[in-house]
């Protein structure tokens, strides 16, 4: 399963988005999930909280989460968080 995010992701957007993403995972029950951030131009630490939540959800299903196509500003946020130690992230 691939979930794609675009635009700007902050606390305001994240509050609604997380429910929608979790519902897609719960419905699809995928073996692996790719979070495609190719269209995401801005992200703050609310994005980290979303990625961690989806990672936990996939772990509970016995699957894995991969984060791909990360643009420069979101990558700086991910780098600062050290999240790449637990989740596979690629540009």
């Amino acid at each position: 399963m691939t979930l794609s995010l675009s635009g700007e992701l902050d606390h305001h957007e994240a509050r609604q988005l997380i429910g929608e993403l979790e519902e897609k995972i719960d419905t699809g029950m995928p073996r692996d999930c790719v979070l495609d951030l190719g269209g995401l131009k801005f992200m703050d630490s609310s994005g980290i909280a979303i990625i961690l939540k989806l990672h936990k959800r996939m772990n509970a299903l016995g699957g894995r989460l991969f984060v791909q196509n990360v643009q420069s500003q979101p990558m700086r946020v991910l780098d600062a968080s050290g999240i790449d130690r637990i989740i596979e992230i690629s540009v």
Binding site: S45, S46, A49, A80
Partner: peptide, 8 residues
């Protein structure tokens, strides 16, 4: 909904 990374 927060990751505890704001100040960091």
């Amino acid at each position: 909904e927060r990751g505890g990374m704001g100040f960091t």
